[in-house]
């Protein structure tokens, strides 16, 4: 019983690792651009596909894909931001939400045309095959790697934003972009970079997910809605909130599934409704952050 409960908590941490990386990217983008990026799940899917195509066509291994795929998807994000999103900044943010929704439909359908609905398998790298004895239980090595890699990326991103001068510029631009620009900082370039970075985070999560799930055109759809719930629970635009809530929600949902399986699919939304009733700005959010 205890070992299965431990296993379930670790399964929750694995789901949480994906929620954390995706909601972190969404939070960074929302913080600076005030855009709810509906295409974020698509970037996650593209990340997995770049790894898959790279392996099939160029023989790229997992470790190269883990670096190359976020770079490729960041470039896709930068092109989208420069050519499409930036044209709508002067309009209500809902227009960009609709635009990112349209981009999602367009890219997903293009991928379905090319690769079909059936998912394609992506093999676990040799070094991460097998299981690991954690002392209190046995757990697949690759899944432990997913948790650790996600934690490293999330903490590094948090440090970048909270402890560096680039991060300070980013936080200031989130608060008052006009004034930051009047200080001589190229805020539009910063926005483009942030959007690209957010997309790269989603792609990194996508590569990590490729060996766990099949690589499929709709894989982003399955995860993006719960990720939006994570962002709301953590607090819109809150970096720390996204990371902590991502892992927390993963574990809570996994425990819900363990004790009462019928509730597992809806638990995250019950949690979101509860948090919104008790603390409308989210667990870590502020009024300024959600304005």
């Amino acid at each position: 019983m205890l070992e299965s409960l431990g296993g379930q908590i670790f399964n929750g941490l694995v789901s949480g690792a994906f929620y954390a990386m995706l909601s972190l990217g969404l939070a960074i983008i929302f913080g600076l651009l005030r855009i709810v990026n509906f295409a974020h799940g698509t970037m996650y899917m593209l990340g997995a596909f770049v790894a898959y195509i790279g392996a099939q066509s160029l023989g790229l291994n997992f470790w190269v894909a883990l670096v190359a795929s976020p770079i490729v998807v960041a470039i896709v994000g930068i092109v989208l931001e420069r050519t499409l999103l930036s044209r709508l900044y002067k309009l209500d943010v809902l227009y960009n939400l609709l635009l990112t929704f349209g981009i999602t439909l367009f890219i997903e359908d293009a991928m379905r045309l090319k690769f079909g609905m059936q998912g394609s398998p992506y093999v676990i790298p040799n070094q991460l095959e097998g299981v690991l004895n954690l002392g209190f239980m046995i757990y697949p090595t690759y899944r432990v790697f997913v948790i650790v890699a996600s934690l490293v990326v999330c903490i590094a991103t948090w440090l970048l934003i909270e402890k560096t001068s680039l991060g300070a510029t980013l936080r200031a631009a989130t608060e008052n972009p006009g004034l930051v620009r009047a200080f001589g900082i190229n805020v539009p370039a910063l926005i483009t970079g942030v959007f690209g970075f957010g997309c790269a985070l989603a792609a990194f999560a996508g590569v990590l997910a490729a060996p766990v799930n099949n690589v499929a055109p709709l894989m982003g759809d399955d995860i993006i809605i719960p990720t939006f719930a994570v962002v709301v629970i953590g607090g819109m635009g809150s970096i720390l909130g996204s990371i902590v809530t991502g892992f927390l929600v993963g574990v809570v949902v996994a425990l819900g599934a363990f004790f009462y399986p019928p509730i597992s699919g809806t638990l995250i939304y019950i949690l979101m409704a509860f948090v919104l009733l008790v603390k409308p700005t989210g667990l870590f959010g502020t009024l300024e952050g959600s304005r």
Binding site: S165, A168, R171, A172, T174, E175, N176, L179, E288
Partner: peptide
């Protein structure tokens, strides 16, 4: 125009 998310030094 002091930023509330930044320290005095930042």
């Amino acid at each position: 125009g002091i930023f509330s998310g930044l320290t005095v030094r930042e």
